[in-house]
């Protein structure tokens, strides 16, 4: 049995809404697991069930070999970092960190030692006497992390902790969280709706949609091998291009091009997915893209254009290329770098 084990965990709210469908999941000790999905997909509910803040309608949760379904949150030995940090506004930083330890009846000297160690690790030693209202967003974030670290819990739970920070700080804190987790080595679950955050932080990633885990795997597995249309569209930035097509006898026919010898026995209407970064310019390419807009990012360009009736088709070109509005580009797909999904079920078929 692994460190954290969810078995057929289900959440049905009193009004009948099924927020989480029978979900089974294992997290190994020291692993950094990320739940990612659009808002309202049930990822936070799942996390809160692990924390004990939501009741479990059905199923079992085991943590470190103990069934914790009925265990009070205060007894579960989990620590959580909330989206708005939930710092205690009337206590200074020191007491914010020390409060959980005091409640566990730890003696004063040990508390002081632990708080100072955590403060040092997070570089907040200078503000221990300040109230949270006197701290900046990034500092508050650190205090919230400190409050989790200081208790040395079995598991860290992060509920979108970076979404209140500005873009630059978010990237910095993301890096620090990852480093910190590697240093402390505590099993962590991180919930986010930001796929870049998810990709960069995760050891493993669970892509959740409508209360169901659509795919579970390492970030690169999921990027390279999305199992469904939803995962393909959600992971990757800019988003994967989707085209309607038909698959018949291993031949895919889209609006104005064909791909032969496809490794699939499926016949019928499909959706073809191509990532913007898997296109290359070549003479007599499959796709003719009429350029409408170019976003220059420096390292590369994002070219948006039209293929016949399909709008906003995106192609990522190298940054040193000059492409103008109105140009027509001839593009090929990198070998085997395309994804074919059943149009009705969204399942991958190639």
């Amino acid at each position: 049995m692994s460190f954290l084990d969810l078995k057929n965990v289900t959440k049905i709210y009193p009004n009948g809404t099924k927020a989480v469908h029978e979900t089974s999941l294992s997290v190994d000790e020291g692993e950094f697991m990320v739940f990612v999905g659009p808002s309202g997909c049930g990822k936070s509910t799942l996390l809160r069930m692990v924390a004990g803040l939501e009741d479990i309608t059905e199923g079992d949760i085991n943590l470190d070999g103990q069934l914790i379904n009925e265990v009070d949150p205060s007894e579960r030995d989990v620590a959580m970092v909330f989206q708005n940090y939930a710092l205690y506004p009337h206590m200074n930083v020191y007491n914010n960190l020390a409060y959980g330890l005091k409640n566990r009846g730890i003696d004063k000297e040990t508390i002081e030692q632990k708080v100072n160690d955590a403060a040092k690790l997070l570089q907040i030693s200078d503000f221990l006497q300040r109230k949270p209202s006197m701290l900046s967003g990034g500092q508050r974030q650190r205090v919230a992390m400190g409050r989790a670290i200081v208790r040395n819990p079995k598991i860290f739970l992060f509920d979108e902790p970076l979404s209140n920070l500005d873009a630059k700080l978010r990237i910095q804190m993301r890096l620090e969280i990852k480093k910190l987790q590697q240093k402390v080595g505590v099993t962590s679950i991180f919930v986010t709706h930001d796929q870049v955050e998810a990709m960069t932080l995760a050891d493993r990633l669970a892509v959740i949609n409508n209360g169901i885990i659509e795919q579970l795997g390492t970030p690169i597995e999921i990027y390279n091998n999305p199992e469904s249309l939803f995962v393909a569209g959600f992971i990757g930035s800019p988003q994967m291009n989707f085209l309607d097509a038909n698959l018949n006898n291993k031949t895919l026919s889209a609006e104005n091009f064909e791909i032969k010898n496809i490794d699939s026995d499926y016949n019928g209407e499909v959706t073809l997915g191509i990532r913007p970064e898997h296109l290359i310019e070549s003479e007599n390419g499959l796709i003719n893209l009429k350029v409408e807009l170019v976003e220059q990012l420096g390292s590369d360009n994002l070219v948006y254009g039209q293929i016949k009736n399909i709008k906003d088709f995106c192609y990522r070109s190298p940054g040193n290329q000059t492409i103008k509005r109105g140009d027509t580009l001839s593009l090929n797909i990198e070998e085997n770098k395309y994804y074919i999904f059943d149009k009705s079920t969204g399942k991958r078929v190639n």
Binding site: G52, L53, P73, S74, M80, F82, Y88, Y99, N103, R147
Partner: peptide, 12 residues
């Protein structure tokens, strides 16, 4: 969140 956070910190 304040209540929830306090709960996780062991406050009854």
């Amino acid at each position: 969140e304040l209540l929830e956070s306090a709960k996780l910190d062991g406050a009854n």
